[in-house]
Amino acid sequence: MALSRRHLLAAPAALATTALLPGPLLAAVAAQTPTLPDLSDWEAVRAQFALDPTYLHFASFFIASHPTPVREALEGYRRAMDANPFLVVERAMFEDDAHNLPLQVCSEAADYLGGKAAEVCLTRSTTEGLALVYHGLPLKAGDEVLTTVHDHYSHHESIRLATARANASMRKIALFASSATASVDEIVGNLRAAVRPATRVVGVTWVHSSTGIRLPIREIAAMLRDLPSPPLLVVDGVHGLGATDETVATMGADYFCAGTHKWMFAPRGTGLVWANAAN
């Protein structure tokens, strides 16, 4: 990807900034939104955050402080909407594709993920994305969803509710004995040994918030593809997206769900699902 970590602050503004808003809507919002600041050095980057200097802030895993470009883009969009609600809503939602704001955001997100706009769904959080994916899967009685004890409550609940509705089942396994000594071979091997003929879906988390373990998604995906009946791979990617130099669309997942208001520093209440178009 051409987008560097240093220039990452410009990316979340894509969810609200003027670069996505063509025609009259672009002009309306552009008039209300300042240009992006110079982010060529880390002091300039740090200065974008209005964080309380009396604290040491290590909580981006929870919810990120909005940097200046995002705060100003949100405020500019709000001013434009207040000035002409009809123009903003009508052109952004109901006109042709060139003026459709959600479609333009999907295109920008796809460029970052390495995929196509048609493969991206906009959500409000990782939780919402996981729920949409699991409840959209064609599970049936007797099917199994295999997940791990390391996954977040929201991931487990999405699986539990979807399998209960379909009269399917869920099973949790440990991928490693100790996070301090976990290896790629141990993780992939334990997962391979746990897959059964009834396993239709495998759900994992890319980066574990509890330990910081980053799962070898590419190796896991390759192992699953080699099985006689490969199960779908669903990835909770919220703690990797924006924090890891990876091209999501080439990792091998079938579904990748992530909020963007953490390591991407995007507006709160934003997220996405990337889905493999082959599915």
Rank of each mutant, 00 (worst) to 15 (best):
A30N: 10
D38Q: 07
T17I: 09
D38E: 09
D143L: 08
A117I: 04
S125E: 04
S60C: 09
L175R: 07
S65G: 15
M93Y: 14
H261D: 15
P12T: 10
T35C: 06
A222P: 11
V235D: 03
R78I: 07
E246R: 08
D82K: 05
A253I: 09
E90A: 13
L56M: 09
T68I: 07
L139K: 02
N279P: 03
E95T: 13
V202L: 03
L161A: 09
N190Y: 01
R268E: 13
H150A: 14
P102D: 09
D151T: 14
N276E: 05
D236V: 14
H57G: 03
P197L: 00
S179C: 12
A2R: 11
M264Q: 04
A30F: 00
V273C: 00
S40Q: 04
T33V: 04
R268P: 09
A118H: 12
L132T: 07
T127G: 08
V105E: 10
H150M: 09
I159S: 02
L227N: 01
T270K: 04
L103G: 08
A73D: 03
T127I: 04
G212Y: 06
V88H: 06
E43W: 03
A278L: 08
G136W: 06
A164E: 14
A19H: 02
A177V: 08
F62N: 12
S183N: 06
D245M: 07
L101D: 10
E219I: 09
V235M: 05
E43Q: 14
D97V: 10
E43I: 04
V45W: 07
F49R: 02
G237M: 00
R6F: 11
Y153W: 11
A168K: 03
L132R: 14
T260M: 12
V149Q: 08
A266Y: 06
D82G: 01
H7V: 01
D245I: 08
T163I: 13
A28C: 05
E219P: 11
G269M: 07
T18D: 14
E95Y: 09
L8H: 12
V207E: 03
H261A: 14
Y153F: 15
D96G: 10
A174V: 01
L191K: 07
Y55R: 14
H239D: 13
S60Q: 11
A2M: 04
A194V: 05
A83F: 01
N167S: 15
V207P: 11
S65T: 12
R6N: 13
T126G: 11
C257G: 08
T127V: 07
V89M: 12
A277P: 13
A50K: 02
A277Y: 03
A277W: 04
A64E: 11
A59H: 10
T163H: 00
L161P: 01
L130T: 13
T147G: 04
T244R: 08
R6Y: 10
V201S: 00
F86C: 03
P37L: 09
T147F: 11
E246Y: 02
T244I: 11
M251R: 12
S158A: 15
T17V: 08
